[in-house]
Nucleic acid binder design. Sequence first.
DNA 1: TATGAATGAGCGTTCATTCAT
DNA 2: TATGAATGAACGCTCATTCAT
Lengths: 200, 200, 200, 200
Amino acid sequence: MARPRSPEKKEWIRKAAINLISEEGFHGVTTDKIAREAGVSVGTIYNYFENKEDIISYIFQVEHKKLNILFDRFQKKEISVPEKFKLLIEKYFKYVFNNEKLARIIHNETFRPGKKITREIFNYILAIRKYLKELVEEGIREGSIYPDYNLDMVVNFIMGLSFTTVVFGLTEPEEVEYIYKKAPEDIYNMLVRGIFVSER
Amino acid sequence: MARPRSPEKKEWIRKAAINLISEEGFHGVTTDKIAREAGVSVGTIYNYFENKEDIISYIFQVEHKKLNILFDRFQKKEISVPEKFKLLIEKYFKYVFNNEKLARIIHNETFRPGKKITREIFNYILAIRKYLKELVEEGIREGSIYPDYNLDMVVNFIMGLSFTTVVFGLTEPEEVEYIYKKAPEDIYNMLVRGIFVSER
Amino acid sequence: MARPRSPEKKEWIRKAAINLISEEGFHGVTTDKIAREAGVSVGTIYNYFENKEDIISYIFQVEHKKLNILFDRFQKKEISVPEKFKLLIEKYFKYVFNNEKLARIIHNETFRPGKKITREIFNYILAIRKYLKELVEEGIREGSIYPDYNLDMVVNFIMGLSFTTVVFGLTEPEEVEYIYKKAPEDIYNMLVRGIFVSER
Amino acid sequence: MARPRSPEKKEWIRKAAINLISEEGFHGVTTDKIAREAGVSVGTIYNYFENKEDIISYIFQVEHKKLNILFDRFQKKEISVPEKFKLLIEKYFKYVFNNEKLARIIHNETFRPGKKITREIFNYILAIRKYLKELVEEGIREGSIYPDYNLDMVVNFIMGLSFTTVVFGLTEPEEVEYIYKKAPEDIYNMLVRGIFVSER
DNA sequence: TATGAATGAGCGTTCATTCAT
DNA sequence: TATGAATGAACGCTCATTCAT
């Protein structure tokens, strides 16, 4: 199993898998289907991947890399933490909107239970949390984030807000566009002032 | 005159299924395993359930009923909407803490993709959204919730916050207790004033 | 398993089995279905029958008895062999017409292959062949049947003619009545002069 | 470039199925048994056939094709209809004698009741009836067949005679050879002059 | 004796993986 | 390296039979 000749073919397989898994779920898709969709034979899949699980692992691996690049770029931005979040949320929704199928997989398969949860999926989520945590800590330091929250929980809030908005959006396709366009602003406002009208 | 069909046995099966599905996921569990865990034969399962899918359907059905009772009780409370939410969130986390396995299933299987998503799971989620929506509308009417958000999105916020906190909590078992105990207050605060320190 | 109290119930089961097996075949019918159709519980079936196979065995047993009575009556008739056959064929078609479901079973299940072919079915067919053989021998003795045929084959002819007419009739329900009314005469004529016009 | 899909293997499966089904009946045979008998794995069966039913369907399909070739050849013969029948009957018995197991299946499974009767079996029988009917009509036209019989019934006669002779022959294996060798002549004679001695 | 819930061997079928070509 | 036929363990489910009531 030396280095495969054709990275191109690995891409075909990855994309085919994304298309199919996003629609039918990991368990609903067979290696045969993936091979057919990829225009490749089943055997070939096993030249590029150890096994079926490895495919979804790789899908997350690729996204993980993209994420790192994004985060690196953010690291260097000289803006306040709230503004970073604002931008980040916008990016996230843009990403979901433009990569609907991928987003669907990420949101559906992330919590696939059992021992079979791939290390790579776990790493992917961990990376997000780690970066957000750093950002929140920075925010607390610069005084732009309330310091009395549990740190992990703030991360959960932010991920949760976006994550769930997306997930519910994906289940109601007719509203997708509207929600995705409006969501970032709403989410940001929510992070600023909550939902409940507070008396001053 | 024969052995009476025992609701007891249906309970055994339901509980066995909850134990196993929470750990291995619906697809990772076989009817044989459920039968063994329930101390019952495979055949017996099919005496109480149409098919494997019907079991998870039933699990949600039971939770749905509990939910309705809860919501009915809330309907009658004469407190402000924010206070209702506060109570609701507390209830929710108490529930998750005491029904960890069930919670795990609810959070994992809710977005199981493919056509096979059970009607009952869908109804369960719908019921929650519907009730929350009513509550939010009430809050807007009474002036306790900012009226400029998209209504669906506010529901998403609230569900998302709680939902994701739970889900991430479930993946980091060592923090579970702390998170669950602290979460309700944090979430409520967040709904009141957001995360970002606002200037006055 | 002493003598059962209620021969009535055994009858219910037999009739239910006839109804169902005639439509779905022996393999297509479950003991549960038979019990339900009979208005009896599965357990009760096993009070009257050793096992499922035993039911079909019994169906043929009952018909066998009716047959013996019929044959005994024929034995005593003082008419020529061709006239006996004529009458016999008429009886047979009348029987099939009035007992369609039973006839269907007899014709379908008679040649059920495998070791499982019940002794009783075999005996039933044997009895028919034996009686016909005696009749043919009598016919040869009295000079009314050509003596140069193989004896078994003549029996086959006669059974085959009737048998197959019925079987094909049963598969084309719209012609049933016509065929059954016209068949006896045609079959008799055929036994008299064949099909091919012979020169004299 | 992979192992090519071998028609050879499909043949193995077909023949294994013939062997087993002829002895135990379609319902008595499992796909596992067929696979073992064919020297192939269960999975391979499903590479060549849609499902178990499809195997028996295919068996009849193959015979159907052979039949068409035979009938085509007969169509062209310039002999009288009775002579055609004579030849046809001889062919039929030769076929049965040389393909005992196949014949057993054809005769046993043809009238398998229930909705599951394969389209292919039905077509097979229909083809035979259709061809015989044409032949009978031709015979009536040329004056070699009595015109006062019901047409369908004449077909039944001929099929029935041969069919049943074979079926009964198959149940008494020790006589098989004798019966099959003698049968064609006897059947032909019977079609010529019947069984009963007619006075002139 | 009657009931019907309980049993579990056994079925047809699928599909991740292997391997001959 | 690519192919796709071959493999067979494993699955969901059925149903004849048993047995507690």
